[in-house]
Simulated assay, not measured.
Amino acid sequence: MTHIQLFNGGISRRSLLKAGTVALAMPAVLRPAFAQEKFVAKIAHTEGVGTPITEAFEKWAQVLNERSEGRIDAQHFPAAQLGGLSELLEGSRIGTIQATTAGPDSEEAIAPEIAAFGGAPGFIYTDEAHVDRVLQGELGQQASQIAREKTGVEFVAYAETGFRHVLSKEPVTALADLEGVKIRVPELRIWVDFWELLGASPTPLPYSEQYSALSTGIIDALDSDVFSILGFKWYEQAKHLTLTGHWFLPKAVRVNAAWLDGLPEDLQTLVRESAKEVFAEQRATNRAEASAALEELKGLGVEVHELSQEELARMKELTAPLFEEFSSKSPETAEMIEKIRALG
C-alpha cells in the first residue's frame, strides 16, 4: 500500500487530516453567525446628575442590561452629554438615540393634542392625584399612541420632575414683581405666551445654558422643579425661590418606535414593563423627597417665598385665555384639554 492508502472505504489519511483541520476551524468561522444579537440602547437626556429622574434612568439602564442578560446594551448619558433638548428629541425621532425624556408639551408643533399632557398651558393639573388619573389611565395610553403615529416615538412610561416654581435673583412676592423680569423659558411658544400674560419678559434658551445665563445677566430668573435647581446648582446664581406651582411637568419616557419594533418580542416586553416599574418608583421618590430638597435649598442660602391665594388666583385668571387659544389649534386638542380638566 502506498502513503495514500485508503481506509474505511476510501478516505485517505491526508484527506482526513485536512477535514479535521477544517472542522476545528469551523466553530471560529460560524460563531458570529450563532452569537446572540446585541441591541444598543443609547439613553440620553438633559436632566441633572443626582436628581431622582436621572437616578431612575441609571437604574433602568442597569435593569435592561441585567434582565436581558446582555442582549440589550443600555448606555446612559445624563445632563445633556449628547446634546440639548431639541437635538435629543430629534435623535429619538430618527433613531440616532433610542430613548430620552421630555414633557409632552415638546410636541406642541407636531401633535398639539398631546402637548397639554405636559402641563400646557399652565395650571391644567390640580394636584399629583390628578396627574395620575390622567397619565396612568386611558388618556396616557392614548397620548402614547398619538406620539407613535405622529412623531415616531412611544411613551413607554411617565416620569416627573414635579411642580415648577420661580427662582429669581430678586424676591418675587407678588405678581407686580414679575414685571419686566427676564425669565428663561423653553423654546416653545406656549411658554412664551404664558409669561408674557404675567408681565414678565420670557427669554427662550436651551436648558443647558441657564447657569451661565443667570451668571451673565442674560436672564434674571427661571422656573424649575426643586431637584433641578439643586442638581444644576442654579441656586448659586439666584437666591430667591417663589412657590407658585404654576406648571406640573410630567416627563414622557420616549423610545424610538422603529428600534422598539425591531427587538425580539421578549425584549419589547422587557423595555415596556421595566420602564413602567422603574418610573413608578421614580414618581413616588420624587414626591416623597420634594420637601427635603426644599429644606436643602434653604440650608444653601435660598430664601423661600409664597404668593398669597389672591395672587395665585390672579395668575390663573391672567393665563386662562391660553386654554381657549391652545384649544383652537385643532378640535382634537380642544377635546383632549376638556378630558384632562374633567379628571381634575
Results as ranks from 00 to 15, higher is better:
Val192Arg: 03
Asp193Asn: 13
Asp193Ala: 15
Phe194Arg: 03
Phe194His: 09
Phe194Trp: 02
Trp195Ile: 10
Trp195Pro: 12
Trp195Lys: 04
Glu196Gln: 11
Glu196Thr: 12
Leu197His: 01
Leu197Asp: 00
Leu198Ile: 08
Leu198Tyr: 00
Leu198Met: 03
Gly199Val: 08
Gly199His: 07
Gly199Met: 07
Ala200Val: 01
Ala200Pro: 02
Ala200Phe: 00
Ala200Cys: 03
Ser201Trp: 00
Pro202Gln: 04
Pro202Trp: 01
Pro202Ala: 03
Thr203Pro: 02
Pro204Ile: 02
Pro204Ser: 05
Pro204Gly: 02
Leu205Ala: 03
Pro206Gln: 14
Pro206Trp: 02
Tyr207Asp: 06
Tyr207Val: 06
Tyr207Cys: 07
Ser208Tyr: 05
Ser208His: 07
Ser208Trp: 04
Ser208Pro: 00
Glu209Ala: 15
Glu209Leu: 14
Gln210Ile: 11
Gln210Trp: 04
Gln210Ser: 13
Gln210Leu: 11
Tyr211Cys: 02
Tyr211Lys: 14
Tyr211Arg: 12
Ser212Gln: 12
Ser212Thr: 11
Ser212Tyr: 07
Ser212His: 07
Ala213Tyr: 03
Ala213Ser: 09
Ala213Cys: 04
Ala213Glu: 03
Ala213Met: 08
Ser215Pro: 02
Ser215Phe: 08
Ser215Cys: 14
Thr216Gln: 08
Thr216Ala: 09
Gly217Pro: 11
Gly217Lys: 15
Ile218Asp: 02
Ile218Ser: 06
Ile219Cys: 15
Asp220Leu: 07
Asp220Glu: 15
Asp220Gln: 07
Ala221His: 15
Ala221Tyr: 13
Ala221Met: 10
Ala221Pro: 08
